[in-house]
Write a protein that binds this DNA or RNA. Sequence first.
DNA 1: TACTACTTTGAACGATCGCTCAATTTTATC
DNA 2: GATAAAATTGAGCGATCGTTCAAAGTAGTA
Lengths: 194, 194
Amino acid sequence: MRKNAKFDRDQVVDKATNLYWEKGFHATSMRNLQDVIDMRPGSIYATFGSKEGLFKEALIRYTEQSLALLQACRRDAASPIEGLKRFIKKIVIDSQTNAPNGMCMLAKTVAELGDENAELLAQAKQSLQRLEGEFEVLIADAQAIQEVADTKSAHELARHIQIQISGLRVYAKTHGPEAPLDSLIDDLFLHYPF
Amino acid sequence: MRKNAKFDRDQVVDKATNLYWEKGFHATSMRNLQDVIDMRPGSIYATFGSKEGLFKEALIRYTEQSLALLQACRRDAASPIEGLKRFIKKIVIDSQTNAPNGMCMLAKTVAELGDENAELLAQAKQSLQRLEGEFEVLIADAQAIQEVADTKSAHELARHIQIQISGLRVYAKTHGPEAPLDSLIDDLFLHYPF
DNA sequence: TACTACTTTGAACGATCGCTCAATTTTATC
DNA sequence: GATAAAATTGAGCGATCGTTCAAAGTAGTA
């Protein structure tokens, strides 16, 4: 008696995420999205409710992908800090060329949106805090194996890492490939506060 | 034989800058601008050419104001580094409540725009580099009076400051007033690489 | 005061925006 | 194969977008 959706929701959200990530919320039109995800307006609105609804889902997808990447980096690396370093190089350096946009989609959203899109703004902030929390877990793991001195506060170190990532991504976008990003990231863990 | 413009161009550009700064390029409509600067479309287009033309002028105005603020901070402070620190506190902490937007308008623009607005993007990048250059001058001055060890590279220290400012502003927007911004900024100059 | 070069006005253009919904198509069930 | 519930379509809604331009207004010169 019922007909199931024929589109692959994950694929659709992925494509929408990449477009939103590339162009930002306001510069992405529903018609852009219709083309990219190959759905007609009625289907999109039946499924996601609104442009904001789809964007929110995109933010959540982006966050899941970022957390998965962090876990993958940690798994492939010899230690927690090596994993964290690998993650940072991936998102700061590789995403300048591979990704839809060199900037973090969450930071971009926090920068772009205001009170008129309070729910999206709150989602982006929460996701950034979630990522920072994962950094803290990784750093605590590093302290447990004496890779990082446990006299330091994992919470403060995670905050420091979060600030460095945001700063480096803006810097990379501003200065292009000439910026010595690789050594800047290596230096992160060689000096204070580490 | 000629009639002079009756509006005050500086005031107009100031108001446009504040609106663009608050809302970003795409979310600001010409009708928003018409209201805020109290000019009719024909006058705006005769004077600035296009929405992009006015935004470019706003970017330049914002940059001039930032440079002026940096000079004022330096003048009012006891030393170059104290002046730089005062500047950073003003733009990272005070502008969370005083300014149209807690984010740097230039970083916001670099994050928002893509190749479709190449000229504006280039202007924003250039302005960010200009500011970084002024940081370097200030740091070199500090080295000349032994406030900073001259074994360090003023260029690299300026880059470090630029990265910290971008990172801190995103962090401040994400975490609100609970973030210990004041002590984070004090710490900037107490530890590596200073 | 009349002239004229310049500025300012605001209605309105075509394009596009986010979104709706009646009509159609599809498919699981009996 | 008939039925009906759900999914999909796409024309098109009203609003707003950036922009134009003929007309009206204004001020410096003669």
